[in-house]
């Protein structure tokens, strides 16, 4: 596989992860736990592959299921929290997991889990991505998807028109987590390794960059953000910490100066008018 194929594949995985984070962000939940779900998905799929000889799809499926369950539990525990406090609590969750993983030699301890079979290929990533994008589009166009945004904008008003805020929030949390888990499962079977620190803060910052800078109000924003911020650093050959420095500066500037991100709804709708059929456009106008 060539260098640029590698970059594109990683970008594809990041797109999947970004969509997971985005889906949960739609209900107004900034989840620092999704980074942990990515890493956990990697650990689950990787461990099953290495220790229990699970093959490709079963390991991904198992990761999705287990992450779904974990996210449901966490989502229920934290359901009364919103905004800042929710974000803080999810931060804590990731850190707890990291500590546990670092001290657990069965899963490789601080050095991480190695030797995961290399099974993920471009076609897998793009296939999963396509399916997930399709599901997100269907969701966004549906009434259920509209309720996500309603909750983000004004939870009280949403509740008053009959939306079950708590349940919808938990669902968006779980769905986003599962997508991240799947992404993590794909990733580990490409990189062959996962470490405890992969669950950490750095990934959350990347997520913010992908979705907030990309455009928090429409799924396209996350896709563009993930692609741009995966490919560009490679193009410009920036080191990891240089990358972080620039990412964080961009994040702060965009949040202040152009909070809607690169792709805001209006731009996206105009763009889609040119290449998508009318039915899709009509669905989006409602949101």
């Amino acid at each position: 596989m060539g260098y640029w194929d590698h970059v594109i594949l990683i970008a594809g995985i990041n797109c999947i992860l970004a969509l997971g984070f985005y889906l949960t962000l739609l209900t107004g939940q900034l989840s620092a736990a999704h980074a942990a779900f990515v890493g956990s998905g990697s650990y689950i799929a990787g461990a099953l592959a290495v220790k229990a000889n699970f093959s490709f799809y079963p390991s991904i499926a198992a990761a999705a299921v287990l992450i779904g369950i974990a996210a449901a539990i966490l989502g229920v525990i934290l359901q009364r929290l919103s905004g800042m406090f929710f974000a803080i609590a999810t931060l804590g969750f990731g850190e707890v997991l990291i500590v546990i993983l670092k001290n657990n030699s069965y899963l490789g301890g601080a050095l991480g889990l190695y030797g995961v079979p290399l099974r993920t290929d471009m076609i897998h990533v793009m296939g999963f991505l396509a399916v997930i994008v399709y599901l997100v589009i269907r969701l966004e166009g549906s009434r259920f998807g509209l309720s996500f945004r309603a909750i983000r904008n004004d939870p009280i008003a949403a509740a008053s028109i009959g939306i079950d805020v708590a349940r919808t929030r938990i669902l968006s949390f779980v769905l986003g987590a599962i997508i991240c888990g799947i992404g993590g499962a794909l990733q580990v079977q490409y990189l062959s390794v996962v470490e405890p620190d992969d669950l950490g803060f750095y990934l959350t910052v990347s997520f913010l960059l992908f979705t907030i800078v990309g455009g928090r109000d429409i799924f396209l924003g996350s896709l563009v953000g993930a692609t741009v911020f995966t490919v560009l650093p490679e193009l410009l050959r920036i080191t990891t910490y240089g990358r972080l420095t620039i990412f964080s500066i961009i994040l702060v500037i965009i949040v202040i100066v152009r909070p809607q991100g690169m792709i805001d709804r209006l731009t996206a709708l105009r763009w889609m008018k040119k290449i998508k059929p009318d039915s899709l456009k009509a669905r989006f106008r409602k949101g």
Partner: peptide, 8 residues
């Protein structure tokens, strides 16, 4: 988000 950015 701003403070996360600054922290990083």
């Amino acid at each position: 988000m701003i403070t996360i950015g600054v922290a990083t």
